[in-house]
């Protein structure tokens, strides 16, 4: 039902291309590539993606599908993603359960959806079409959010579960996003995880955020914090071994720093298995 388990990986960034192909070759079991970074005609990005995929399984992770948007699905974008997938043979393709803009505008943000039955139906029908056009099941990630719509009449975890079950898609659980949203919306992050069906979870993300006082902001520019490590441990206890990776998009350190973080994830999984 799930795609193969890949173990521990990293989000690949251009700063680390040479290290991943040189002195750190084989340091991780897989790499997650940001889809949009490789939707370019040619040159260095696609050159490195080709070289990396000779050594690492690749997963494509997009930010512009706008699966919850009200505009028609961008078929040209989907065609480009499919062409890229034919080229780099990803283990799976993921994007976010969100919308990114309307009336042709792309706000380049992962905006939350109202948690309603009507939105569930809307998103499920669009996932059906995307899965058909990509010829594979989609993996969708929960996003961090900073507001709740007055019209929402179910919880985020109910919304996520309903969509995954009805669309028969898989989930990428971003443990940091669950934690960030739990603080911003005052819910119990463990309760969130307890409600997600185990058989739907394909992947975990781990990342850092910024504490802005009343809110946590999902910035991906800090190390993973202690509370997220603790939640990761809880998630492993519930879901078992799940392909896990570290995401870093700002203040990008040397790859060795991210490998140290990833080593901690490995150790936590080992402890959970032993227990």
């Amino acid at each position: 039902m799930l795609f193969p388990h890949l173990g521990f990986g990293l989000g690949v960034r251009p700063e680390h291309y040479e290290a991943l192909l040189g002195e750190r070759l084989g340091c991780v079991s897989w790499l997650e590539a940001l889809t949009e970074n490789y939707l370019v005609p040619g040159g260095r990005p696609l050159h490195y993606l080709e070289r990396l995929r000779a050594h690492y399984p690749i997963v494509l992770h997009g930010v512009s599908l706008s699966i919850g948007g009200s505009d028609p699905l961008n078929l040209e974008y989907l065609k480009q993603v499919r062409t890229l997938a034919e080229r780099c043979k990803p283990a799976w393709i993921s994007d976010h359960l969100c919308w990114t803009g309307v009336d042709g505008v792309n706000l380049h943000d992962l905006l939350p959806l109202p948690y309603t039955e009507a939105t569930v139906r809307h998103v499920v029908s669009r996932i059906d079409e995307v899965q058909h056009r990509l010829g594979r099941r989609l993996v969708l990630e929960n996003v961090s959010s900073y507001l709740t719509y007055a019209q929402s009449d179910m919880s985020e975890w109910e919304f996520l579960t309903e969509i995954a079950e009805r669309a028969d898609c898989l989930l990428l659980l971003d443990i940091n996003n669950v934690y960030v949203s739990s603080i911003n919306h005052d819910f119990d992050p463990k309760s969130y995880l307890r409600h997600i069906p185990v058989q739907r979870v394909q992947q975990f993300h781990l990342a850092g955020h910024r504490d802005c006082g009343t809110f946590l902001i999902d910035t991906h520019d800090e190390p993973v914090c202690e509370a997220v490590w603790e939640l990761y441990s809880f998630a492993l206890g519930r879901f078992g071994p799940v392909s896990t990776m570290i995401e870093r998009d700002g203040n990008i350190p040397g790859v060795e720093v991210l490998l140290e973080e990833l080593q901690r994830a490995r150790e936590i999984e080992r402890e959970i298995r032993a227990a």
Partner: peptide, 26 residues
């Protein structure tokens, strides 16, 4: 209703025009 909500949200993000989006937020 979803399109209407998203247009209000987007108008607020773009800051281009007054929007009543705040009434849609808890």
């Amino acid at each position: 209703p979803l399109l209407e909500l998203q247009r209000m949200f987007q108008a607020d993000v773009l800051g281009a025009q007054p929007s009543s989006f705040a009434t849609e937020v808890v």
